[in-house]
Design a protein around this nucleic acid. Structure first.
Lengths: 125, 125
DNA sequence: CAGCATCCTGCGTGATACTG
DNA sequence: CAGTATCACGCAGGATGCTG
């Protein structure tokens, strides 16, 4: 891989999509944010539901995904610039438009590959 | 990493989905197969559309993805067992049920992250 | 609290060669 | 034609420790 010279989207939306959501948490972050803005730690904590018992998420990783999503234009970073740091992330319009797609994915996933005992955030809709 | 002890689906359909389609070509393979069965080389060739100029796809990679998809129950491998080898891959019912999801993804992708000059297989829906 | 800096590791992926 | 075998590499992602 890593040819990364000329495949902004490869001419294929699917490939572009894959790139955009590459990373274990991206989809779930967006999904978590669909209910409203959240703070860094809230996202982090939320991601642990269903993490399978692994340790905590490395801040480096979460940070990276958040940044990538922001640069992809899916979400917006709001830094309050206060002393005890406070940062909120919220979906942009583009991000919101993406939620239904995730919903479709979740929907399919629950029907077809789910051992899935509903312990997830599925009470949402 | 490599916790891999108990996360068949992490309890999260989205995570399971990500696992299932992890791999650069999986989604596109399924998409390509939506029109009917295809042979190994056809898939390989088809995948090159939009490959961005990289060399050909390593057979090892394609092979692996195909196998994974088969084990995931999305597609079916049909070996004709003839002298000049001939193998066809076709979507299973489950695989077909997944096509609309990809369609949703493509649809969103074309609207939101597409440099996308319609050179793809978009005539589909 | 919200990160960034550093080290380390496994796996996905590419390239090439070989086989039934 | 449809793969498997082998070598090599980069990057995602985990674990710690530190900072503003």
């Amino acid at each position: 891989m890593a040819k990364a010279k000329s495949d902004p989207a490869c001419g294929c939306p699917v490939a572009a999509f894959q790139k955009m959501i590459s990373g274990k948490y991206k989809l779930r972050i967006v999904w978590d944010l669909k209910d409203g803005p959240r703070r860094y730690s809230e996202i982090r904590t939320g991601l642990l539901r269903g993490a399978g018992g692994s340790a905590e998420i490395a801040p480096r990783v979460l940070s990276r995904e958040l940044k990538a999503l922001a640069e992809a234009g899916l979400l917006d970073r709001k830094d309050f610039g206060v002393v005890p740091p406070k940062v909120e992330y919220r979906l942009t319009r583009k991000g919101k438009s993406f939620v239904p797609v995730i919903a479709a994915i979740r929907n399919w996933g629950m029907r077809h590959l789910a051992p899935v005992e509903m312990s997830d955030g599925m009470a949402a809709e």
